[in-house]
């Protein structure tokens, strides 16, 4: 008997013969009396809540109209002296039209060391969750590979409201494809490992700027 069979046999002995099948009893066994979202909000209030929760975890939140986006992105990058900017292939190029910094393409051939030389990255997102202050990236063309939003120290993420906004985690999951690699981001990198005292900024981008585009 190999280890797989041994573990499965032990499980079956331990739980006895289940009289029901897993699929038929699942819905009955699991009560879902919790809320689909917490409280009722208008679309505008949901956007405000996202902004508030993002800010509480030290993300910097900006609001803009689509037309003002290029100027805002250019300003945010310049303020932090970005000399190079990663841009995923599917990011609308007009967003970066005012950027003075050198543009770096997201390429499968670039090494982690090369990415470490880049100062900033601009991406879109798959969706945002207001109640938890969370951005979700799914690797779509406007977001790129996971590593490009990890190694540069400054991440600017554009969220379209209300289209990409949901209130709660239960509303977020059905809109996401589990087959894609997902990254859920709630504020900049942080740690509580020293005396359970929260400090922002360890390995991920230490500056997270979120632009809500209406």
């Amino acid at each position: 008997m190999n280890s797989r069979e041994r573990v499965l046999a032990r499980v079956r002995r331990a739980v006895g013969d289940a009289s029901d099948s897993a699929s038929s009893s699942y819905a009955q066994d699991v009560p879902r009396d919790y809320h689909e979202q917490h409280g009722a909000r208008t679309a505008a209030e949901t956007a405000d809540l996202l902004a508030e929760n993002l800010a509480e975890y030290r993300a910097l939140v900006h609001r803009a109209q689509e037309a003002d986006l290029p100027a805002l992105i250019a300003r945010l990058l310049a303020e932090r002296d970005a000399d190079s900017v990663l841009a995923p292939a599917g990011l609308p190029r007009e967003w970066l039209s005012g950027v003075a910094a050198r543009l770096v393409e997201d390429s499968p051939d670039s090494t982690p060391h090369e990415l470490d030389e880049v100062t900033a990255v601009v991406t879109g997102c798959a969706l945002a969750v207001a109640e938890t202050g969370t951005l979700v990236l799914d690797g779509s063309p406007d977001q790129g590979r996971r590593r490009i939003t990890l190694i540069p120290d400054h991440h600017i993420c554009v969220v379209r409201v209300p289209e990409q906004l949901v209130s709660s985690v239960p509303q977020a999951l059905p809109r996401l494809d589990p087959g894609r690699p997902l990254t859920w981001i709630s504020g900049p990198s942080a740690t509580s490992d020293i005396e359970l005292d929260r400090v922002e900024g360890v390995h991920g981008p230490r500056t997270l700027q979120v632009i809500l585009v209406e």
Binding site: G133, R146, P178, P181, L182
Partner: peptide, 17 residues
């Protein structure tokens, strides 16, 4: 309310990870 990073992955992906 949410930890800073959550990663999910399913097997391997082409040229990401």
């Amino acid at each position: 309310r949410m930890n800073p990073y959550t990663s999910t992955w399913t097997g391997t992906s082409d040229s990401d990870g």
